[in-house]
Design a protein around this nucleic acid. Structure first.
Lengths: 333, 333
DNA sequence: GTGAAAGCGCTAACAA
DNA sequence: TTGTTAGCGCTTTCAC
């Protein structure tokens, strides 16, 4: 176990360029005053030696790591990779890198604290399972945190989410336009703020428009965990005329059960709307009408917020709502 | 922009515990000799002050960052989140954290070098688009790299992949058992080592068993990019009796086109086998027979390899092949 | 615009 | 087992 010293340091570059170490430093720090000539000299020397500034040493003096902790989604939901790419890419543009924060605390819950040894400048919590410990740690160390596409109630943190209430309203309008009166909101089992907003928008609007209340029925956010609840729903008397589902996965589970086990036609016997617009929504088997979240925007905004809070030491909370778009395919009419 | 100093340092802890700074350090470093009594004292002081060792300062002296660069997949393929979770969790067990390396080099390609400012101890490249620059940088800085579930030919690095050749053989046997003779391998457009292995295993075995050669037809690894190629294939005379697809997404595209546009029954008119066992493979619309990769094992092994290469300074290449399992559902008979 | 010197928080010799 | 000392590679005053 023989760990070598770092190969090239700013000292080496300084020597080769014939300047002081601090001049080298200045060249690599934005906005320092260095003459164009020495700057060139230093760049040349740096390139010749293949020099990379040591971010750790830098952090030690600047007290900024340019590292953002990223709580990444725990569900194997098709859109989450895109989320990660978008966030990572936005961070990169601003000179930040992302460190993964494992959401699964194993055993003694020492894992969360571990990440704070790296002194992340901020944390982005991307639609993952709730983790109280994380929020407490952030508060303790005064690390700004922003929630991406989710809100954990009771936590005082910034967030960027889609306008779920409007989505609910639009779905309700769509169904009301078809003069339906027995409609269902199919929800997941874990109550979340964003889901509740959709429920509220849907129920409020449908009530207003038709005078009837939708049934809210609990299943699961994913496919396989919802099958039995859907069977129960469809076995209990007349099927609903339309179903608005909490996720696309759930909507697809509903469509499959309705078609293959209850011989119902979508959209003629029952209309279905999902939420998320996962790639599978376009597939020929589903052609699902659904709401597309503007993930690029969500990523951009959350990164912007976190970087502002870092730079400005501005601890005021930002709550942003991004519009969604209804994508009509063949599961509605 | 008022950046505060770090709140609590080992010095503070030392003072409170009434010991020297180096004793505090020893308490937080595995395998140092400290008496149980002082250890307790230090722990108490640390807890009272909410002390976290500064990983940057530590790295500076140890020349080890305990950070692993992670090149994460660029495709929005359903299993990739699981991959990330598994790798991240395995890393955590060994005391490492993962820093995301953005695969998309924007513009001036300065992004890759950036990550090396953090002096990652190693790099795991998880099934992503090939990036020559990354490999060169790693070599330049002597950073071990291991490829997860992929092999970029021409690169001298360790890798862990599934036994794709065997998968091809098993698929061939399955089809040969049904006495078929017109079978197709539906491949993606970008040639990869793992895919080629599957092609080889499939063709070799089918040839051996039946004396016939499968047709190898090029489409795409994802769903929507493959539709036209599949239409072309099915429009050209009699449909194949069976198709082995490079990915599950591709298999599902084939099933959809076959059923909805060519009125073919799966598996009676044409049998289909996929590869990956994504969650959708179990869905009622597909019930796809496919090969399940042992991602947990792939993650575990790749982390083990990288950590060994870091610890042992062992630059010998490890090439590991992990068995796959054929999961038979209703798309074959 | 540039250099010298001090110090960020930690670990690793070397003594004791 | 413990304390003292000397850096790790960088940035940042403060002179000049």
């Amino acid at each position: 176990m023989n760990i070598p010293k770092q190969t090239v340091t700013s000292k080496d570059v300084a020597k080769l360029a014939g300047v002081s170490q601090s001049t080298v430093s200045r060249v690599f720090v934005e906005g320092s005053s260095v003459s164009e000539k020495t700057k060139q000299k230093v760049f040349e020397a740096a390139k010749a030696l293949n020099y990379r500034p040591n971010a750790f040493a830098r952090s030690l003096t600047t007290n900024q790591s340019k590292l953002i902790g990223l709580v990444f989604p725990d569900a194997d939901y098709p859109i989450h990779m895109k989320t990660l790419q978008l966030i990572s890419s936005e961070l990169q543009k601003l000179g930040y890198s992302a460190v993964l924060i494992p959401w699964q605390v194993d055993g003694d819950s020492h894992s969360i604290p571990n990440i704070f040894q790296y002194r992340v400048d901020g944390v982005i919590a991307a639609s993952a399972t709730f983790n109280t410990a994380l929020y407490e740690e952030c508060e303790e160390f005064n690390i700004p945190i922003v929630q991406y596409a989710r809100v954990v109630e009771g936590t005082k943190s910034s967030y960027v989410i889609s306008d779920n209430y409007s989505a609910g309203q639009i779905a309700a309008q769509k169904f009301a336009d078809s003069a339906l009166n027995d409609v269902v909101y199919l929800t997941g089992e874990v109550p979340t703020f964003t889901n509740q907003e959709r429920v509220n928008g849907f129920c409020d609007e449908f009530q207003t428009l038709t005078g009837k209340s939708p049934r809210v029925i609990e299943a699961n956010y994913d496919y396989s965990g919802s099958l039995d609840e859907i069977r129960t729903l469809l076995s209990a008397g007349k099927p609903p005329q339309a179903v608005f589902c909490a996720t696309d996965n759930l909507a697809m589970a509903f469509m499959d059960i309705a078609r293959f086990e209850f011989n119902l036609d979508v959209p003629n016997d029952v209309q279905v709307i999902g939420f998320d617009d996962i790639p599978q929504a376009t597939w020929l088997s589903y052609q699902l009408s659904t709401f597309r979240q503007d993930f690029a925007r969500l990523a951009r905004e959350s990164v912007k917020i976190i970087s502002n809070q870092i730079k400005e030491k501005d601890s005021s909370l930002v709550r942003l709502m991004v519009p969604v778009r209804f994508i009509e395919r063949n599961s509605t009419k």
